[in-house]
Design a protein around this nucleic acid. Structure first.
Lengths: 209, 209, 209, 209
DNA sequence: CATGAATGAGCCTTCATTCAT
DNA sequence: CATGAATGAAGGCTCATTCAT
């Protein structure tokens, strides 16, 4: 009897935990937009709540504190972002196609998700000052590095050659370009962005020589 | 009457403006250290004043608001940083020497001025959210780009070859490496920093092929 | 019809009221420990609920508000405390025995139930500001007074003399000693407590001359 | 020259410190009334500020935190209260006069400064839970004990006899009466207070037998 | 009945900014 | 000019209370 009763209670408890987690995720995702708009330091919990359908009390109900919420939001960002190019890799049949589709998606997400990317750089920057973000930042950064590496190493393979640099160097090069393009995109300098787009294929080739 | 009197008044006015500017600069420099320690968002004017020999009232006398002060401080940062490698370029007699001294200085300043560099990235990051920083940030960024370009183009010259990428790409590559190394330096991962140092000469060579 | 039906309904209603009261009591007792630990102002209903086997929602079902719960808890305290010395009185065969056993129990409960006594004083203190506590506090205080009086008057009897002061004065004297000893006990000054213990028999004798 | 200049600067600095301290004291005294009205737990800094002529920001300017303010307020209370009976002692020419004037002042201050006394007991009670108040509370308590002792020992002297109990016991007895009378005064039971007043001379005589 | 999600008033505190001296 | 007293908006957080399930 206890067996069955326990497992029933367990099921109820698990369902509640699931619900709790689902709501946490929901709130974290809702948070992402406000956060992307204003950045970490300028975003208050009240503001986040006002942009959601809940009161600010709810945020404190589901998250221990502001950092907990932001961290969870960033994890959601990661879930969305970190496999972005994988289908490009999957369907590529020629090096040119892979390269061109990668470049296209690179600049598409740059302008479409500009505020979201801006948030990521904001948080990575926070981690320079606030060690409590570092673990998550480093983990996401390594996933981004791996994501880029999957593209470049596949590109090298299709071109029957080898990557020219380490995964780390490869990543920071493309990430540096992305950061710079983002800044110029937000500064409304489309011509600079276009210029960078024109150069990107050459950079990619440079990375696989 | 007006002629003479005006020019005398002009001189007096100009002298006062100069004094005013000198004091602004002095205060901005005094600000830099505190700012570097805590970052933009976490630094209060009171804190800055307490770490200087001035009262916080005077900050509002010489600067319109916090942003004005920070912007001025960043301009001072630029003055310090942006010619860092020029003497390395000047005294280089062989490509190896130039490359090695550049690498050495690159990682020296990384650890010696870590907090100052961190501040720069903080402010460049702010500019993604706050357009009032952008003009200064873009200007400093272009100076940094030029500084890097002087090194790499001279390196190419010494090796009798050409840079492999544009100034922009060259800059973001090295800057990306610097950012990443800074994060790992502050996270106290010297082994990752050492690894990056080991790879840097190869990256430089990649940039001049 | 109404006659019978009513009385049956009455019985049901009464049984439900009894159950309701029983649950109130149960919850109030469960509350006491947490309350004693933290005091009135610092104890949240959530905390109380977490330290019990109930949810905080149920507290609001059985109690109108926090004050109602606390008041009920205090009444439970009274039930526990207010007959403490009666068995000492009952079994005393000599004045010395009564006095010494009273002194022993006095200081035993001081250290064993320190947090509970602290709560009592906290609530009596609340009643100085909040009239809604006063009726209960005065009632408990009068029971405590009577309890002390049973000891002292019996002691006088055993010594063939009369109490030297009124019940009220007798009570406040011993209660004042108790309060002071409690403060020093909680401040971890056992030597002061020991000193007070040494003096207590003399005070008792003073009260019956 | 430096000698003179320094001492002039010193004088200015000292004057500013004095001004700062004077304002602290002023605010602490102003605080006392709000605090006396509402008690420690129910008093917010905003409420205190609203009852003063300042904004709540000022409180944070002059006091590190709420506890700092309350502690300072209590010290002001002490300064006022702790010598209350000394003039009674000074001018007493007969034991009867001393006793009667003491009794009169005892019950005068009871009703005139009822809220202030209530605050004292509130804070002494806080110290049962919050050790950060204890040092101040114990110190004030010892001053109160000394104050009472000056009365009773002088009374004994005038009556050519000795105190019957230790200073501690003497204090807690009279303080216990005061507490009880205060409670009944605030509960609007003047008849009980009158009764206690009638008994007080007898208690005093008990304390010097 | 019991639960716990949701609310929102209110708390303490920080801080950029103003302004009388 | 420089100081620092004073302001008040805003922030993170707590918690009694309500109410749908």
């Amino acid at each position: 009897m206890t067996q069955v009763a326990d497992s029933k209670q367990d099921r109820i408890a698990r369902r509640q935990v699931d619900k709790f987690e689902a709501r946490r995720t929901e709130l974290a995702v809702a948070t992402l937009h406000t956060l992307a708009e204003l950045g970490y330091a300028r975003t208050s919990l009240r503001e986040i709540a006002q942009n959601s359908e809940f009161s600010h009390g709810v945020l404190h109900y589901y998250f221990a504190d502001k950092r907990d919420l932001i961290t969870e939001a960033v994890r959601q960002y990661e879930a969305v972002c970190v496999t972005r190019y994988d289908e490009v890799v999957a369907r590529a049949s020629s090096p040119e196609q892979l390269r061109d589709e990668f470049v296209a998606m690179f600049f598409d997400t740059l302008s479409e998700d500009a505020t979201l990317h801006r948030l990521w750089y904001d948080l990575r920057n926070q981690s320079l000052f606030d060690s409590s973000f570092r673990a998550d930042v480093l983990e996401i950064d390594s996933h981004r590095e791996a994501m880029v590496w999957r593209v470049i190493s596949r590109y090298a393979e299709l071109r029957d050659t080898e990557p020219a640099a380490s995964p780390a160097t490869t990543y920071v090069t493309l990430d540096g370009i992305f950061q710079r393009a983002l800044l110029h995109h937000l500064t409304d300098r489309p011509e600079t962005v276009a210029e960078m787009r024109g150069e990107l294929p050459g950079v990619i080739d440079l990375l696989v020589r």
